[in-house]
Design a protein around this nucleic acid. Structure first.
Length: 365
DNA sequence: AAAGCGGGGGG
DNA sequence: CCCCCAGCTTT
């Protein structure tokens, strides 16, 4: 346990005073505050902000007013009501958990047992704590992203909260400050405090009831907490892109498979090696002429770097009909979705073609 | 364009 | 213990 900044009693007193004045007291799941309604709200609130959740929650409750109704509904309907919220595994887990509760817990959420709650799909330690505290008022601890942020600042806890050692420390702090009474209010207060005052971007430290004891604030380093996830070096992959142009200067594009990287977008034919590209050209084109390779350039994705080697080739036509492709006219471009680096290459090719035309135009010096 | 987000799952 | 993933929002 790091040095306490405040006694639990003093912390709770200040937090609840702030909550009474500035917290959220009229959220749809706060009345009536049943285990089922609190549960659904907590699942929706994972990775999603309150303002977004409210409408989804109300629609969901109108269609599935009880755990029983949810358990007996077809999964398609559950997913339909989740459309737009994202992270659809949450909806599948929620649905599955409702069926488990119906079969194994008499149609009720097992809110008397944190362990039983955590055993349900989609409910981890923090969500279980939130459900218990909010729906039963019994003592339970939460540690969501808001609470993590507030506590790392208050105690200037170093390290990325995703690391187990840091997370253990934060759980112990969260437990230390948690009261035995007014659990629903306290839990909501912790979440509201992080969401509306101790925000990630511009925390309102001037209005904060803990600014006199906050270590990060004292050091003028509020924005340094919590530390961010260490970013790892991105792996690099290579690809060879065939920039195939016909006699009219049109470029051959092929549509990507519907899912995965650049799913459904149009791209130049791609190959893992120069040899594979050459083989394809030899096999599928008529009178190909390789031009000097263009400079290699890099496109960065969230999880890897792609080194692209563009190989221009001019041919008279393709052999055989290729159904997943089009000849893309640079001067009259069809409205296709293009992968970003492909768009860049096509723009270059177009600019060069125009330069060529100008230089060779009649009357040009 | 990048970071953040709770839980699940695999190595 | 580590890493990755899902999808949308905020920065």
């Amino acid at each position: 346990m790091p040095t306490p900044r405040l006694s639990p009693g003093e912390f709770q007193k200040r937090l609840l005073a702030w909550f009474d004045q500035h917290g959220r007291h009229d959220l749809p799941w706060q009345s009536p505050r049943t285990p089922y309604r609190v549960w659904v709200s907590e699942i929706m609130l994972q990775q999603t902000q309150v303002a977004t959740v409210i409408d989804y929650f109300n629609r969901f409750m109108a269609r599935f007013p009880t755990l029983d109704a949810l358990a007996r509904a077809p999964q398609d309907e559950v997913l339909h009501l989740w459309t737009g919220l994202g992270y659809y595994a949450r909806a599948r887990n929620l649905h599955k958990a409702a069926q488990v509760a119906l079969a194994e817990h008499g149609g009720e959420l097992p809110v008397e047992s944190e362990e039983a709650l955590i055993a349900l799909p989609g409910i981890g330690r923090s969500t279980a704590g939130a459900i218990i505290a909010q729906s039963t008022g019994k003592r339970a601890v939460i540690l969501d992203g808001n609470v993590k942020r507030s506590l790392t600042r208050l105690h200037a806890v170093p390290g990325w909260p995703g690391r187990p050692a840091v997370e253990r420390k934060l759980w112990s702090l969260a437990d230390y400050y948690t009261p035995a009474k007014r659990l629903a209010d306290y839990t909501q207060a912790m979440m509201d405090f992080g969401a509306t005052l101790c925000k990630r971007g511009q925390p309102a430290c001037v209005a904060c009831p803990f600014s006199d004891v906050c270590l990060a604030f004292a050091h003028g380093e509020v924005q340094h907490y919590p530390e961010s996830k260490p970013k790892k070096a991105l792996p690099t992959r290579q690809t060879f892109m065939l920039l195939l142009q016909d006699a009219k200067g049109r470029v051959w594009l092929e549509q990507r498979p519907p899912s995965g990287l650049w799913g459904g977008l149009w791209s130049l034919p791609q190959f893992d090696t120069q040899q594979a590209l050459d083989d394809w050209v030899a096999m599928h084109t008529v009178a190909p002429q390789h031009e000097p390779a263009r400079p290699v350039f890099t496109h960065t994705f969230s999880h890897f770097r792609l080194e692209i080697s563009p190989q221009p080739v001019v041919c008279t036509t393709l052999t055989g009909v290729r159904e997943n492709g089009v000849w893309y006219d640079l001067n009259d471009p069809p409205e296709l979705g293009l992968a970003a680096p492909v768009k860049r290459l096509l723009t270059q090719a177009h600019a060069e073609a125009r330069t060529f035309d100008l230089e060779n135009a009649p009357g040009h010096a």
